[in-house]
Design a protein around this nucleic acid. Structure first.
Lengths: 236, 236
DNA sequence: CGAGGCGTTGAATGGCCTCAACGATGGTGG
DNA sequence: CCACCATCGTTGAGGCCATTCAACGCCTCG
């Protein structure tokens, strides 16, 4: 794949971690000015278009990534070729943690929406993590968060009827409960997240729209009827 | 629950980590003699019977556990009461890692087979981990392993037909490919692992037995026809 | 010996999948 | 600029597989 070429074209500058707008919520939250002076390798930023593959399962993991804006899917394959989306990464999420262990990447990471990421050499994070307890702790927290997410995908998104799963996914995608807007993805991706077919995903969403549980604000952006969807998610 | 009473009765002695028979493959693999002298809190060992609950989701996590022998299930609940087994823990696995973050336990941990565990105070592991790079790394590896397991449960055990899932579970439970023996669990647990009903689990296993893919060696212990089950697991 | 738990099996229902067709959309090239 | 084509969401019909509800035998244990 022309991954390197793509990445080179997607380059959008060197990161300025000290003045990062996400600083408070991001991997390097606990670092101080003197710590940053220890970073000699460059930290690059990239702007990625939907469809771009950031890395592939099996690639040598030399970098971690923080998602600044946008969304990526982490996918895994079965021997028979079928695929399953195992997790989503959105703003402030870190992906590629396995690179810290000199392990290969475990998933394909594919961009779903226009996305910006920061790229950290694993070596840098590894070294800083051993010296700085706050970063060390932050890393463990990140790992635990990924694990909780994985568990939730199993219990919430792979259990129950298709209706329930779709409802739970929609609720899960709502970021701001106030305007309750939810950015949707392609029906095929939704199917791959929930373990159902594209058609069933489409049918269910179309049905929700007809019932007024979803109101299309823009293309694939919906206003979500939270209480009623929650009822569906739990009961039946 | 009478958890504390149960645990007190299950106490089987103080652990002798230095001479642990699992030392090479276990959490403290990287520690040296001088490190152990830093451990002042006691590390207890317990013998647990099937059905025992080691800890519950929401409990304050003050301990990590290493499984010496046996098996436990980690389960999570949905608001509607249905439950799902999210992972298994078997020999040399560590559970309760979330205690390192002063987090509550995320699952119920329930014993499936006669089991022995070592119990580590989270504070001890936390302190040692900050000083000892090898333990630090071992912890990250454990976290990553748990994450890989979680992903595998999603892609392998929650995707495809019931036949495929059961076949994949059986293959996954085989420890020694040579005698290919596989310890099975109650049908209800199998259903909760695979996201299928008890009846479907029972029907599928009974069918495998009739076809000679499984031969019952002892009660719920089976000899497994690996190549043919693998064919089912992949194809159809 | 009776009770309860567990694995198994049957019959019927229904939900999801499969295969297929069609309209809308957006990008491309003439 | 517009015709063309590929992609995507939607919908329909039919069939299959898993669920549901029920019954039964076996085993353990009190």
């Amino acid at each position: 794949m022309a991954k390197n070429v793509t990445l080179r074209e997607a380059w959008s500058g060197l990161a300025d971690c000290l003045n990062c707008s996400l600083r408070a919520t991001v991997l390097f939250a606990g670092l101080e000015e003197k710590d940053f002076s220890l970073i000699h390798d460059p930290i690059d930023q990239y702007r990625l278009q939907p469809g771009t593959t950031l890395y592939r399962a099996g690639d040598t993991g030399e970098y971690l990534f923080t998602v600044r804006v946008g969304a990526l899917k982490l996918m895994q394959y079965l021997p028979d070729g079928s695929q399953r989306i195992v997790r989503l990464a959105r703003t402030t999420d870190v992906i590629g943690l396995e690179a810290l262990l000199e392990s290969n990447y475990q998933h394909d990471a594919v961009v779903l929406q226009p996305t910006e990421v920061c790229r950290f050499p694993a070596r840098v994070v590894r070294e800083l993590g051993q010296q700085n307890p706050k970063l060390h702790r932050e890393l463990m927290t990140r790992w635990q968060r990924a694990l909780s997410e994985a568990d939730a995908w199993l219990t919430e998104l792979s259990t129950g009827s298709a209706r329930q799963r779709v409802a739970r996914l929609l609720l899960r995608l709502v970021r701001d409960p106030l305007n309750s807007e939810s950015e949707l993805f392609g029906r095929e991706d939704i199917g791959a997240m929930l373990g159902i077919t594209t058609e069933t995903a489409s049918r269910t969403i179309a049905d929700f729209k007809r019932r007024g549980l979803l109101v299309e604000a823009a293309s694939n952006a919906f206003l979500v009827d939270i209480p009623n969807l929650r009822r569906i998610a739990e009961g039946s």
